[in-house]
Design a binder for these strands. Sequence first.
DNA 1: TGTACATCAGTGAACGCGCGTTCACTGATGTAC
DNA 2: TGTACATCAGTGAACGCGCGTTCACTGATGTAC
Lengths: 215, 215
Amino acid sequence: MSHTPGVRQARKQKTRQALLDAALQLLEGQSLSSLGLREVTRAAGIAPTAFYRHFRSVEDLGVALVGEALGSLHPMIRTTVSSTGDGEERIERAVDLIAGHVDAYPAHVRFIARERHGGVRSVREAIHGQLGLFTAEVGEALGKDAVSAGWSHEDVLMLAQLYVDLMLGTASLLLEGMAGSEAGARERVSRVAARQMRLIGIGRMHWLDQPGGGE
Amino acid sequence: MSHTPGVRQARKQKTRQALLDAALQLLEGQSLSSLGLREVTRAAGIAPTAFYRHFRSVEDLGVALVGEALGSLHPMIRTTVSSTGDGEERIERAVDLIAGHVDAYPAHVRFIARERHGGVRSVREAIHGQLGLFTAEVGEALGKDAVSAGWSHEDVLMLAQLYVDLMLGTASLLLEGMAGSEAGARERVSRVAARQMRLIGIGRMHWLDQPGGGE
DNA sequence: TGTACATCAGTGAACGCGCGTTCACTGATGTAC
DNA sequence: TGTACATCAGTGAACGCGCGTTCACTGATGTAC
């Protein structure tokens, strides 16, 4: 009524998304620091100059991609961490959820794994910041378990970091397994990841047994 | 006598090293997939065309860098893994060795962390291959410990992978800590890494306690 | 030791090409009355 | 509802620039005798 049916705005949003999608696809075979503006606009089907209506630079687009990629990761981590059942069941479910996420958003996973240590500072920092939030969230969930009684906040976070890194590493290995030709790569990776989680879980159970373990 | 004092060969080797060094330095601020041939030769102080006397492409140079970077890592891992003493001492020594390595070869560490998941397939594969050898070596050392009696080969490797990933992750975080401005970042990272190793060590001690733990 | 020839690391000019960015523009959408 | 004007997403020509690669070359080093 008073303003904006927003046809213009909706179209702009659509073009913006086309740029993000095109970039994400092009990034499967290269790093952000070598991705070209013209390359992206060509793949998105618009004139190079229109790029500037949406982003100041490719680097800026990269930061936007971090939000999109880790946004899709967020609910996945939430589900994983809040799942119930005994340790073994939770581990199986976690590994399945990771594998499912890699299937559903392979380009997002690749982007995060690649640019986490990549050549573009602002993107690295954006990823680092988001992963810090995830770690805090995982830590909060872990802290509520009975096993964590008597743990310092610092130790809960160190455990959370261990899990988050393991999840990311596993996701990245699953991705390579998808690309590779060898059969059973995925199963092998999942199996190893489950055992690593199990071992960490065992360490967690006995953390306070050792003198000085939890000080 | 019979052949080659090798003045020519020595000079060629020196130029080759200058190219590798220049590339490594340039890679602190970008990824391999955006590194230019002319950029490298300019930094190395030779004509662009001379590059081809040493490498077929920048990608090829990248593969050579993997050898150099992981060659420097090799003795470090050897030392870490063969050190004696009780668990706590070994952990402290391992963390100190990692920190020392990051100080001594920061560009190597950055290169491996960055290109491990980077945009150049052949370099990724070279890194993956070398890390596989390291994991096998760490696994062999771990397997000799009394704690590993009764462990399957597969489980020893899964543990070795956990340690190798933790070392690499820690090295990368220490590097960021060096670059960043906050005081005490290094100490914090080292402290967390030591605790993560301790927790994994505890998990290792009790691995065979659980029914089905080592099957 | 000296001479004549072969090798080959490094040079410098030249090429065609795609890049990021500027600019004035077009025409559909939005707004005021 | 209709009209006049403002906004602004997307266009297309033009620019200067650095890129990777080719080519014929130079001159120091290596080899044969």
